[in-house]
């Protein structure tokens, strides 16, 4: 230990100035995160265009057929909305964290005085912006292609359920990002994302899936988000929406713990 520091070494920080700086950093960090991804065509295409494309293909094919109380185009608006926000969340957290860790870029940020929460909030903001974009794009596509027109409160309900529902998948993505390497992350996340989406009834209605998949679905977080989204248009398979919401909260807590463990492990990994 050395002697106490003279005052000029530890400048007394003005709290308001510090808050202002935090907000400015957050704004710039979020802007950087969005610009970074918007300029990568493959990111924007895979997070927004793929769900919309799938929805248009299936929605246009089966559009007017009934799926429970609503037609299939309305049903799939909810499930492809879930598919879209899950993808935006998993990729904007998982893949970008894994790649930036691999580059040493995360390490440089941690060595800077950047508040760690800024980075998490910026990536969360990025995931929510892309989630909102994919949901709105799906709603427009549903109206244009299959004439799906919901009431304004239903649209809003669906929109906010999906947006809030992206959060647990952001946390799952964070866990993947710290646990996986930069090369394996995109592959592993796709191998989890696509089968999970199918088995959760996000591509085809859950009641059209084989029995064993229907039995397994309640163990998949994407199933609960799909059902919660369907409940806003009155087409969920049954069960209390609160139960699905509880399952998503539980998912968030478990994934959050795993993300913390993965983060600790990654930060003590060997250095050259």
């Amino acid at each position: 230990m050395i002697a106490a520091q003279p005052p000029e070494v530890l400048p007394r920080r003005n709290r308001r100035a510090a808050t202002g700086r935090y907000l400015r950093t957050l704004r710039l960090e979020l802007g950087a995160e969005l610009l970074k991804n918007l300029r990568i065509p493959v990111y924007a295409v895979s997070t927004i265009a793929f769900p919309v494309m799938f929805y248009v293909v299936f929605g246009a094919t089966f559009g007017r057929e009934p799926a429970g109380p609503v037609n299939i185009a309305t049903y799939m608006l909810a499930t492809y909305g879930a598919f879209g926000v899950v993808g935006a969340a998993l990729f904007s957290f998982g893949v970008s964290v894994a790649i930036e860790r691999g580059q040493g870029w995360m390490r440089l940020k941690r060595a800077s005085p950047m508040p760690p929460s800024v980075l998490v909030l910026a990536k969360l903001g990025n995931a929510l912006v892309f989630s909102a974009a994919v949901v709105v794009a799906l709603m427009i596509a549903g109206f244009v292609v299959a004439g799906v027109l919901l009431s304004v409160p239903t649209y809003l309900q669906l929109f906010f359920v999906l947006l809030l529902g992206a959060v647990p998948f952001c946390v799952i993505g964070q866990a993947f990002g710290y646990a996986l390497g930069p090369n394996s992350a995109p592959v592993v996340i796709n191998l989890v994302y696509l089968p999970m989406a199918f088995a959760s009834g996000l591509w085809l209605p859950i009641h059209q899936l084989p029995g064993f998949l229907q039995a397994a679905a309640p163990f998949l977080p994407a199933f609960h988000l799909g059902q919660l989204a369907l409940s806003t248009v009155g087409a969920h398979a049954g069960g209390d929406p609160a139960g699905h919401a509880f399952a998503l909260v539980l998912t968030t807590l478990v994934a959050g713990s795993l993300a913390m463990i993965a983060y600790r492990r990654s930060s003590i990994a060997t250095y050259g």
Partner: peptide, 17 residues
């Protein structure tokens, strides 16, 4: 760390910024 600047070995930096 507010008084520290670091130049580390990086294999990449977000390229589109």
């Amino acid at each position: 760390r507010e008084r520290l600047g670091a130049m580390l070995q990086l294999s990449g930096v977000p390229e589109t910024l």
